[in-house]
Amino acid sequence: MLSKIGNVDRRIIYVLLCAVIAIALIKPVGLAIKVSAETKKVYDAIDRLPPGSIVWLGFEFDAGGIPELMPAARAIIRHGFQKDIRFVCGGMWTMAGDMATMAFDAVKKDFPDKQYGVDWVNIGYRPGNTIWLDQMIKDAAAASAGVDSYGNPLADLPLMQEFTGIKDAKMMIIFVTGTPGTPEYIKTVSTPYGIPLAVSTISVEVPGTMPYINSGQVLGGVLGMKGAAEYEVLVNKPGSAVAGMDAQSFAHALIILFIILGNIGYILEKKNSVAK
C-alpha cells in the first residue's frame, strides 16, 4: 500500500491531468489575474509609441507554441491597432507566415478600417536563420526575394515604402519558443542597431529569458500563458489565455497533490524500512 502512494502508475497521473485540464477549459471559473511588471513594461512601451510607428513582429514559433503565444500575439496586435501602430512581421521559423496570418485574421474583424499592405505586412518565413535576419535589417526586399508571404510584390505595398528594413522599426516584439529566438535578435539586431526589443515567450523559456530582461537587453516580457492572460486583461479582451489560466492553475494543483502524495509515500516507506 505504502509503495503504491509513492509509486503511482504514471498512466493514472496522465488521465487525471487530462480530465482536470479539460474540465477547467470547458467550465472556467474565472480566477482573478494580476498584471506583472514584465507584462506592464511591454504594454507601456507600445503605449508610448507615436501613432503611425512601425513595429517589427517576429513570429519565431510553430504549431506547438500556439496555446501560449497566439493569445499574446493577438492581444499585442489589438493594442497596436488601437494606438494606430503599423506592423511588419516575419520570422525564421517555417510557420512564421501562417502564425502571423492566424494572429491578424483573428484581430482584423474588430478593426474594419485597417488594411493589409497599409497597416500591416506579412513577409512570412524565409530560410537562412540569423543570416536572413542580418539581411533583413537593411534590405527587407532583397532578403525576402521582393515578395510577401502571399506572393504579393513588396514594392506594391504602401507600408513597404516606409519600411526598407528592420532598422526602420521603432520597436521589435518577438514571439519565441526556442532557437532561433531571443539571443539571436539581441546579437544580430538590438545590440548593434539599438532597436528596443520585447519578448513574448512560452513558459519553459521564461527562466532563460529573465537574465536578458534583468540586464535591460530586453525591455520587458509577456511571459508564458500567464503573461498572455495579463495582456488580454490589459486590452480588455479576455480570451483563450485567461481561460487557460484556470486550467493551468488546476493542473499545477494536481501535480502538487501528487508530489505531496509521493513524498508521504517516500517518508512512510523510509520509516518502514528503518523499522525492519
Binding site: G178, T179, V204, E205, P207, G208
Partner: peptide, 8 residues
C-alpha cells in the same frame, strides 16, 4: 546540454 531552458 548547454540549452538553459532544458537543463532543469
Amino acid at each position: 546540454t548547454a540549452n538553459t531552458a532544458q537543463i532543469p
